[in-house]
Design a protein around this nucleic acid. Sequence first.
DNA 1: GACGTATACTTGAGGACGCAATGATCATAG
DNA 2: CTATGATCATTGCGTCCTCAAGTATACGTC
Lengths: 145, 145
Amino acid sequence: MIAWVRFLRAHAATTRELGARLEADHGLTMSDYDVLIQLYFAEGHAMRRVDIARQVLLTASGITRLLDGLERCGLVAKQACASDARVSYAVLTEEGVKKVEAARDTHLADVEELFGSRFSSQERDQLAELLGRLPLAHTAEACET
Amino acid sequence: MIAWVRFLRAHAATTRELGARLEADHGLTMSDYDVLIQLYFAEGHAMRRVDIARQVLLTASGITRLLDGLERCGLVAKQACASDARVSYAVLTEEGVKKVEAARDTHLADVEELFGSRFSSQERDQLAELLGRLPLAHTAEACET
DNA sequence: GACGTATACTTGAGGACGCAATGATCATAG
DNA sequence: CTATGATCATTGCGTCCTCAAGTATACGTC
């Protein structure tokens, strides 16, 4: 299945390059960025950790460690939940918001260059439709990049 | 860019599931399988390590370690190059060939189930064409799964 | 034929992430 | 109110893989 191999290769090559740029420009992993963006578009810039995990398709443990890093950098803060003592929200700090906005500019441009610019808008829609048929394991289906 | 996010999510979900099955059924990583397949279709079931790296989009060092594992399992053997003392070929052993053939059966079925079956043959071609436009970094462009 | 540069491979150190086990907390049923 | 079972988060351990540096070999140039 040629489409599958290309899918794999395209993903490896594109994310490698994109990740390298993100790292160089902002010191962020693609996963870091992904999580920050989710928070950015969440109500109050806050989310439960489980929900982040589901959105980003990482494990709960992956999220814990990733957030540890972002907290150490001061981009995210922990916040308890009033109604349920088990959950702890992750909240974007002031600095985190700035960081996202800064990173977003260059990252979106990079994605456009390496990915989007390869297709017409019609093709993009079609690609999105086709890819949307693939299984998403839990739930997910995020939105804005 | 919605297509991009779906691309990312689809990749994560699909490879996770596929990898888990491959591990459970044959004790192989997707990368292991990928390398084994490349060798399987190479002349004499042998390749230079650099060429493997380029095909599967891993680093040279990644290949070294991955092959270490496959050698310990007896699936692959090292072989010197007559004309260039720097290169060492990786060669599939008898057992390696059997392993590939066994793994291929179930893996192709899994790929078909999780990926291929979602599209008509026309859509598969189109998907392949679209994905083929993405950058491949070095060279690559493998073939058979 | 010695010298500088490019190429093939390996190794050490470290990061990212999954799995499985654990600790809390909640919710439901009795 | 307590027992049972889910859910949220964290942690220990291990794996995969990268980057940077190091070694060995090849090759072009003077």
